[in-house]
Amino acid sequence: MTKTNELVKKLVEEHGVARESLLPVLQGIVKEERYLSKEAMRDVAEQLDISAAEVYGTASFFSFLDTEEKGKYIIRVCKSITCDMKGKCELVRTMEDILKIKVGQTTVGKRFSLLETNCIGLCDQGPAMLINDDYYTKLTPVKVREILGDLIRKTS
């Protein structure tokens, strides 16, 4: 049994085999593995007795259920209207520079994924972003350099 098999088994034991457990189970996998691998989705399909296509169809609907491998730190920069007005583009450019990737990509060492996301409810403190579950507000290029710098040091 692989680690993924075990994780899926554990999550299904916790949430049950009914269809309404699908989202909590998928969220549990993403929490541990940062994304849903083919193996994980097939496993879930088997445990919940639904087709793999249905699992993928549901997962791909939601922006927090990634089906491509993601980095340890998933950066989600808000691109909705107020954050856009307050300088989101410059932030993204700064991060693309630092991480040497484009939006939508993951760094080679799988440390960072840089994504844009729709409104995260921090419009009054924009521009804002989430890194994993934590939020960062009133960002400037300088602040972003600091935040990423800290994380880079932490992981190297």
């Binding site: 309404e20 699908l22 969220q27 549901t58 609907f61």
Partner: peptide, 19 residues
């Protein structure tokens, strides 16, 4: 899990049902 349309109550329920 990240979908604006789930604020619509029947979409919200669908997603709770694993769809």
């Amino acid at each position: 899990a990240g979908a604006y349309v789930c604020g619509e109550e029947t979409a919200l329920i669908e997603s709770m049902e694993g769809k």
